[in-house]
Simulated scan of single mutants.
Amino acid sequence: MPSPLFAPSAQRTLSRRSWLHSAIAASTAFTTAGLGLPLSAQAKQAATYPARPLKVIVPYPAGGVIDVTARAVTDALAQRWGQPVIVENRPGANGNLGAHAVHQATPDGYTLLIGSMFTVINPLTDSSTRYRTSDFVPVASIGSTPNVWVVPASAPWHTLHDFLAQARQQPGAFNVANPGQGSSNHLGVERLAAAAGIQLTQINYQGQPPFITDLINGQLHIAPLTATLALPHIQSGKLRALAVAAPTRLAALAQVPTLSEQGLSDATVVPWSGFMAPAGTPEAIVAQLQAAIVQVQAQPAVLQRYAALQAQAPERPQDFAQLVQHEQQRWALVLGRTEQTAKAR
C-alpha cells in the first residue's frame, strides 16, 4: 500500500503517526572500482585529471539556491584547475531527469551530478525512477540552506508552541504549504505533525516562490521556507519566524530558536546537496575531486557567496557518503520501504 506521505492529492489532512527512530542496517555500497581498467591505466588517467572540461548537471532551474551554491564551488574549481566546469541545468521529474543523465554517463569523472534529498527519496517512492541511490558515488557535500518555520505577520502566534497549542485544539483547521512531494519542506511538515501530535491541512504548490504571497496574505497559516527566501520577508515585517530547522541557530536570525531547542528535534529535516559521480568512477579520480572541492570550499570568496545565500557550508564535505547513507536509512525506515519495493509497484 502506498505511504500516505505521498498521496497524490492537492489537499489532505496529516494525522499523528507512530514513527520508528532506531537505526537500521543498510547495504548501501558506493562502487568506486572504476571502469574495469587496469590499475596502471587508472593511475595514468588520474594523473592527468582533469584533462578536459567537466560538466556538472544541476537538476533544478537556474538561479535557485542549490544552483547558485553549486556555481560558487564550480567557479572556484575552474579557476583552480584551469579547465572549464560547465553547469548544465536540467530540471524536471523531481530531479530524475538530471539524475538519469548522469547515471547513463561514462563514469570517468567528467560528468557529475549535484544530488540532494531526491536521490534518496525518489528510489523509495517513485516507481518511474530508473536508478538506485547506490548508482552514484557521493563525492563531497556543498552544505545546506535550512528552512525557517514562518507565519504571516498578522498571525496571533509569536512562538511555535503558541501555534502548536492551538493546532492541537483545532485539528485540520490550519493550512500548511507543501512545495514539492519528497522535498525537505514537505518532509519537515510530516515530521512536525508527527512529533507534535497535530493535524494540518496540506496545500500543494509547484515550488516555494508560488506560495509566499498566499502565506503573507494569510491564506496559508504556516510554512517551512528556505532561509534564503524567508529572510527578506522577515526583515520587511511581512513574515514572522518561529523556528529554524537546523542543528544550530542562523547568524541572521540569532533570536529564533531551533526546533531542537523547542523539544522537537525529531521534526528537524535539513536539506542537503553535494557532488555525485556515476558508480564505477575510478577511486583515484573521486579522491582528487573530493580533495579539490574541500579546498575550494574553504576559500573566503566561496564562503562569502554562501553567506549571502544564508547557506551553511559543511564542516567536513568529505563525509558526504556517510550523510547520504544515514539519510537513506532514515527515510527507508520512516516510509517503511526499500528501493526494491518501490520499483516493484
Score class of each variant (00 low, 15 high):
320 F>R: 04
44 K>E: 15
252 A>P: 00
343 K>M: 13
69 T>V: 15
123 P>C: 06
330 R>E: 00
123 P>I: 08
171 P>Q: 11
167 A>K: 03
155 A>R: 08
293 I>H: 09
76 A>L: 10
52 R>A: 15
300 P>H: 09
137 V>M: 11
81 W>R: 05
182 G>W: 02
340 Q>Y: 06
345 R>Q: 12
19 W>P: 00
306 Y>Q: 03
181 Q>A: 14
2 P>D: 08
168 R>H: 12
10 A>K: 09
142 I>K: 03
132 R>F: 04
175 N>S: 07
33 A>V: 11
303 L>H: 02
328 Q>M: 07
230 A>T: 05
8 P>E: 11
247 P>T: 10
321 A>H: 08
20 L>D: 11
155 A>K: 09
175 N>G: 02
41 A>R: 07
94 N>W: 05
179 P>S: 02
242 L>V: 04
8 P>Q: 10
90 R>D: 10
67 D>M: 03
135 D>A: 12
6 F>A: 04
62 A>V: 14
312 Q>H: 01
279 A>Q: 14
180 G>W: 05
86 I>H: 03
204 N>K: 07
73 V>M: 07
326 H>P: 00
51 A>C: 04
158 H>F: 07
234 I>S: 06
157 W>L: 10
83 Q>T: 13
8 P>K: 03
163 F>R: 08
36 G>E: 11
306 Y>D: 03
24 I>Q: 13
84 P>G: 09
48 T>A: 14
173 A>S: 15
168 R>K: 15
65 V>H: 02
287 A>I: 07
143 G>R: 01
278 P>N: 11
343 K>Y: 09
259 L>K: 10
257 P>V: 04
137 V>R: 14
258 T>Q: 09
273 S>L: 11
33 A>P: 01
59 P>R: 03
17 R>I: 15
106 T>A: 14
28 T>K: 09
37 L>Y: 02
304 Q>F: 04
230 A>Q: 08
303 L>F: 07
190 E>T: 02
70 A>L: 05
329 Q>R: 12
327 E>L: 12
100 H>R: 11
35 L>F: 02
67 D>S: 14
70 A>I: 08
3 S>P: 01
224 P>H: 03
35 L>P: 01
324 V>G: 01
208 Q>L: 01
69 T>K: 06
270 V>P: 01
96 N>K: 13
133 T>M: 08
221 H>N: 15
301 A>G: 00
72 A>G: 10
253 L>Y: 04
30 F>H: 11
147 N>Y: 05
100 H>C: 00
332 A>Y: 02
108 D>E: 09
331 W>S: 09
162 D>N: 11
111 T>C: 11
234 I>E: 08
305 R>Y: 09
327 E>H: 05
283 E>I: 06
